[in-house]
Design a protein around this nucleic acid. Sequence first.
RNA 1: GCCCAAGUGGCGGAAUGGUAGACGCAGGGGAUUCAAAAUCCCCCGCCGCGAGGCGUGCCGGUUCGAGUCCGGCCUUGGGUACCA
Length: 846
Amino acid sequence: MSRYNAAEIEARWQDAWDKAGIFTAERKEGKPKYYVLEMFPYPSGKLHMGHVRNYTMGDVIARYKISTGHNVLHPMGFDAFGMPAENAAMAIGGHPKTWTYNNIDDMVEQMKPLGLSLDWSRMFATCDPEYYGQQQSLFLDFLDKGLVYRKNAVVNWDPVDMTVLANEQVEGGRGWRSGAVVERKELTQWFFKISDMADELLEALDGLDNWPAKVKLMQANWIGKSRGLQFGFERVDGGEPIVVYTTRPDTLNGASFVGISPDHPIAKAMEGNPEVDAFLAEARKGGTTEEAIETAEKLGYDTGIKVKHPLTGAELPVWIANFILMDYGTGAIFACPAHDQRDLDFCRKYDLPVIDTFVSLDDPKPVDKAAFVPPKSEKVKWVDHFAGLDEATGEEAINATIDFMEAKGLGEGVTKFRLRDWGLSRQRYWGCPIPVVHCDACGVVPEKKENLPVELPDDVSFDQPGNPLDRHPTWRDVACPACGKPAKRETDTMDTFVDSSWYFARFTAPRAETPTNAADAEYWMNVDQYIGGVEHAILHLLYARFFARAMHICGHLPESAKEPFDALFTQGMVTHAIYKSEGADGRPVYHYPEEVTLKGDKAVLEDGREVDVVPSAKMSKSKNNVVNPLHIIESYGADTARWFVLSDSPPERDVEWTASGAEAAHKHLGRVYRIASEIDADAKGQEADDTALIREMHKAIHDVTMGVESFGFNAAIAKLYGFTNALGKSNAGGKAKREAALTLAQLMSPMTPHLAEAVWEMLGGEGLCALAPWPVADEAMLVDDEIVMPIQINGKRRAEISVPKDMDKAEVEKLALAHHAVQKVLDGATPKKVIVVPGRIVNVVA
RNA sequence: GCCCAAGUGGCGGAAUGGUAGACGCAGGGGAUUCAAAAUCCCCCGCCGCGAGGCGUGCCGGUUCGAGUCCGGCCUUGGGUACCA
């Protein structure tokens, strides 16, 4: 009897799969295709357990689909542009390109031992000129179709380093390197017209039956379709009316002031006035994130301008307020402090009036410290409502108000979206160059397609802040493609979300001379199963949906690929406890898990010092709570790592990596190997034991298949533990045991493919286990002949009876009522009600 | 701030509105062994000697029956448009 040797088995079978070329995808007629894709990684250089979990899940699906007769496409690539490469170049020197490609090589080396069923021949990185050149070509097509345009937008500006900062580079409102207070500054930038498709992107969510409801809900809220009233406030001084948009026009009587964004034309027109300038400078401090703006202290400035209330004729002041976004609605609002907490806080601070427009039916008191904001569906009592309402819900009042205002010719009901156009300009080097040239004579001129790719220059340095492309004369200064006169290249590069918005389409024909190839796109699209982190629920997935539509408009994808991902699964993170002690300088020191020994609930270093254990957190380099998959593979093998990341937690939830868990997983795989190796095919057994084992086998087939198909990997694995136990204890004959073990190998094969092949071979399975047809459960074997039914009395479990599986309800009821526990409680009385749920439960209501 | 989730034994978790705690870890007991490793068997939510009672973050509701559905909170996590 040989022992389970993962290293030997894994190398051997990876080699066998490679030689047989079973994962290389080709178009084949006669077999249904299946495209499974995991969100591709950023090449940080270190593969972590989160990657292992993500790719193992995809691999389970891919291998399962191979077994069920599908022609599977399962590719891998790298999302290779982005800030970390530039940060590394700044911090440790070197070039982003070298850093990135070295990391890619390292990560491929780390991925290969996992035995993933990937078609490596299709691999690419988004920083390959062959890829980003095609992306530039797409950009020019989009430009041609009016899907791209330029406008001003605000960025985080570091006034000391004189550079644009990413949101991540703003910490507490200050630049992460300079420490200077960040300002919001306007720049002219490129935008994708995603807002044109807002309604379609919203409506189409309905058709995504195999997407998680929460993702669809988040996207729907993000797109934020709303119906409201748009109308103008006449200015007392006779200037242009101030147009506002509101989703709560019903509260118009409660208006206490008109607020405009610091970026509103009226505010801008007042620049030059030192007091206004001082206020605007203050209001523009801090980062551009919605969170920063929403949570910043509310500031206001009274412009002195007065407007007339359209219904009452009362004069209202116009304030500039830092919490009003120019990007949403019209950049101007009216404030109703009685029914909006933010407005109320502002009005209390600046001593502006608070007017109740409606009060609660149960508790009709005026607003004091808390705004009264009931759900729009709740009926409330209206105070002197102009449209004659007395008791009505907010919804009814909104509609009545819009009708009223439209009838009077004072405003109109309009539909607006929260979704803004997608700004794609980045003032950075390591990204896809935007292929246009700025010419004094011709304006913005697209680069000619035959000149693509516009390649990034290699001779750049990162010794000073700012975009190196801006200070690279030989790259920047070019002849205008239209008139030939001296001109300047666009030095902004594209947002890395652009790179990841179409890579799934490129995988269908990664070496094509055009962005996609029609026949390949037609055959392979859509992605049948997409798997990735829930952190991408909104941006990446929405941008990809937009891109698929835009690519269809430009003829790069078929109509049927407008929604590119048929099914989506969002998985959780891999977490680990953090081991922390205090260094000599009082700062925290983080220790790697391998430096720590666990003794009960204490964690001890090699030198005997005890360290604090902080409960599980996302694995992060800065906290050193990372487990290197390579170390796990070296000590236990890839199958153990794969089995463990799938076994302990439901895939959509976070999983905590524990050393004991990994050991347990390894022990179990060794047990499977041993049980299989001990089977003597000629051994005789009892017929009853054979039947019992085969029955267990069919139940396992059923449950594991369900588990794999519904992403219940942890439940499938629990079932496999049970089936292995049953097989280990069974007194069945060798023939039945061999059949059961072969099936066990197949059922485990998507999760632990190497071990499965070894067991399959040991027991004389035909060909590769990976290619063997998936077993099918015999329905007749799934239900036992006798079932145990619990009896509840008034909802509490009191007894149980064993009955034949198909006994009818009346018989069951009779048996239940005859049970002594029931008799005792009833004490001769007739039960009020008896509920028999066939095959489930009996409830007696006494 | 706003949007979306999650919360069940010592731990990870299981449970189409129908026996809460499957399966695994940790722990306890035993077998085997000269001894150990490995392996195998049994026990294992809390309170209680027991009968029994209490238990799925908190408060309330719907139901014959709620971990599951509804309303309100609390805590943690994800997103918040330039991290990917």
